[in-house]
Design a protein around this nucleic acid. Structure first.
Lengths: 164, 164
DNA sequence: TTAATTTAAGACCCTACTGGTCCCCATTCA
DNA sequence: TGAATGGGGACCAGTAGGGTCTTAAATTAA
């Protein structure tokens, strides 16, 4: 599925929200506005602060603020901060595993990782916040028969928050 | 983590193996050569056959053969067949969820999905099989502080098969 | 100085998915 | 006819993602 973790998804939503507001916001208010559960938002913002994407202010009247403008934060960076390096497999960035020679693809996955990474670096949070920018579906691959389990519909989990 | 499923990883390994051999191969022999457990290879090949990537021959002296040349199969296609459409979130290809307006990013993820998809379409299995093609790490993003759990080292799961 | 507000840090649990196995049936060839 | 091989399921278990809770620390306002 090449699925993003929910946390990374939520992080994008929260960061964009923080960006369009511009001012200081508490975890509680962000949770309310985005629909993400409050404890989750708190946990998320802690990590984002550690990663340098937001700045935290403790104490009464405290909260969080974006460390940089939306246009200066790429989606790749958000994912990296929340989920760690963008690697589609565990064999990542030349870090060969003990069985590298067995699979015959040792090191080759870095090509894939690099391509994905570069693609995600070209998209900024400002792009995500801009409703005029939509993906052109004409360049999308046509649907093919797949062997994956039938998608549990209605379970729109991430990006669209606020659902159970 | 934006991690590929192990199955998709295995599929790539098996397909490349099938490609460099060229001739008909049984699930058992492929399992032995790649180190992937045999029942898993069998399950995998069933799906790949349904997806049109391999052709199956039943009965004694049966087996599997690549449906197309390695250079004509993109990594994106393998992933699509094994794991389903390449969508980093559940909001995919205009399929908005019930809470689309809540998160404020309804539809915007398609931009990300499209970018990733296009990146993966440029890489073929022939590229994966070619050890001369290595990713240039100079274009990789520098490591940043991350909030993700400490990577359990030694757990090289996929791409490098044959480990517990 | 004290109380209220808010983040920081960590422990903990539960659900769901992934991945792996097994079984029986259908098909083909010797 | 029997052996070999794929086809199509069902089924189970380990894991980790993600959500919650609790306590501590910092800052501000009254």
């Amino acid at each position: 599925m090449l699925r993003l973790s929910k946390l990374a998804d939520y992080a994008t939503v929260v960061l964009v929200r923080l960006g369009v507001r511009g001012d200081l916001a508490t975890a509680a208010s962000l949770a309310q506005e985005t629909g993400v559960p409050e404890p989750t938002v708190a946990k998320l913002l802690k990590g984002l602060a550690a990663g340098g994407l937001v700045v935290s202010y403790r104490g009464a009247r405290g909260g969080y603020r974006l460390a940089e403008a939306l246009k200066d934060i790429s989606v790749a960076r958000v994912i990296t901060v929340v989920d760690g390096p963008i690697c589609v497999t565990a064999c990542c960035d030349g870090k060969e595993c003990a069985h590298g020679e067995t699979c015959g693809l040792s090191g080759q996955w870095d090509m894939v990782n690099g391509a994905v990474r570069q693609a995600l670096e070209t998209i900024t949070l400002a792009d995500m916040a801009n409703p005029d920018l939509k993906f052109d579906p004409s360049s999308a691959t046509s649907a093919e028969a797949t062997m994956h389990r039938p998608e549990k519909q209605g379970g729109c989990h991430a990006g669209c928050v606020g659902n159970p």
